[in-house]
Design a protein around this nucleic acid. Sequence first.
DNA 1: CACCACAGTGAGGAAATTATGAACATTGCT
DNA 2: AGCAATGTTCATAATTTCCTCACTGTGGTG
Lengths: 223, 223
Amino acid sequence: MYKILVVDDEDNIREVLKEYAEFEGHEVDEACDGMQAIEMAKNKDYDIIIMDVMMPRLDGYSACKEIRKVKQTPMLMLSARGEEYDKLFGFELGIDDYVVKPFSPKEVMARINAIVKRNTASASVSSEVEKFEGLEINFTSRDVFIDGEKANLTPKEYDLLFYLVRNKNIALTRNKLLEEVWGYDFFGDDRTIDTHIKMLRNNLGPYRKYIVTLRGLGYKFEA
Amino acid sequence: MYKILVVDDEDNIREVLKEYAEFEGHEVDEACDGMQAIEMAKNKDYDIIIMDVMMPRLDGYSACKEIRKVKQTPMLMLSARGEEYDKLFGFELGIDDYVVKPFSPKEVMARINAIVKRNTASASVSSEVEKFEGLEINFTSRDVFIDGEKANLTPKEYDLLFYLVRNKNIALTRNKLLEEVWGYDFFGDDRTIDTHIKMLRNNLGPYRKYIVTLRGLGYKFEA
DNA sequence: CACCACAGTGAGGAAATTATGAACATTGCT
DNA sequence: AGCAATGTTCATAATTTCCTCACTGTGGTG
């Protein structure tokens, strides 16, 4: 039996996880924002904290950082695609694992078991850097340099570029991009992608050439 | 492409899911109550079963339990808000996920993808490449190289070539090609195929020889 | 060897798709 | 609230691709 703290602002998500966890014999506490989570985590020793990234009052990252100042409780983050998920790899946060919404409660429980059992901080992603001529992309620090100069990309542009580069030389359909970069719950216009591709290209200067249009399909980062 | 079984007593729900899933290229069977679902699940291997909780004759829980006796097919349950969640998780049913009505078909599809991907754990992600002498076809990056040089094909040409190669050494009738490459709803001129074959051949240079005309029938990629 | 059904070709207009600019909406911050 | 930055939508322009069609080429058959 584990003591689990579930932190999410959506009632039904907390509800589902709680039901499932309790069914498996665990003890579950709930919090609905970061502030509350910090408070509770400080006052009780949990075996694991499951926390949503996006919450009102105080987001998951900040709460995580704050809690880490005093406790080494393992953490599993929940994030919707479309959130800047590269941040999740930031090992300074010491996140043990993360699950992307929509998830199945079954999967979350499986991961909880894995984490608690090994009870060791998981190996974090090492500082990843990709270079294409004068285009340098640092996944860890979330920086992009163009001929040595730091590019000033907006969050979406970062996300889009990162996804493209992580899947370089793979043909990506518009649907795939929408689902992975914007999130499964995005019901927007297809032209939105084009617009962001356009801005990204403008920002990449001479290296815009790496982003190729696949007519009738989508885009590809070709290196 | 997944094989999906949709079980719900409401016609329009089945209809919506079916349309959406088929649009995404999946194969969908329908059942309108638990009994029927069990029957069908036993006789065919589905990638996932989507089942309503409340149905006449035999409800979703019972059907799920019954199916689980013989198959480990992943299941996604549909439930109306207000039905007791605990039931969903209370009986070692091994449900993978559930969605509360009213749902968006897009979300359901996203979850289906998540579940099936997870369950086909050992899915190989090898970069698919086919080589015929100096003709190299990369299905992943959607590239075609001719003696090391990248060919510049239009979308239709890619589609046509990919389909021919995926079915190499199989005689393909014009009808079959029209249906598979152009889509069942295409009502065009027969010369359309010829024209695209022509373009494709021109683009393949010396390797045009692989595309063989079967007089009176259609074409074949002969390797 | 002439016929005929079928396949190959070229070109231009039609159709589909993407790029772009600007308006509009949203978010975050002071 | 007001502003600045970012994200989204939409209309329009710019491209690219597709399809049709009339015509030409070809192989097999009687």
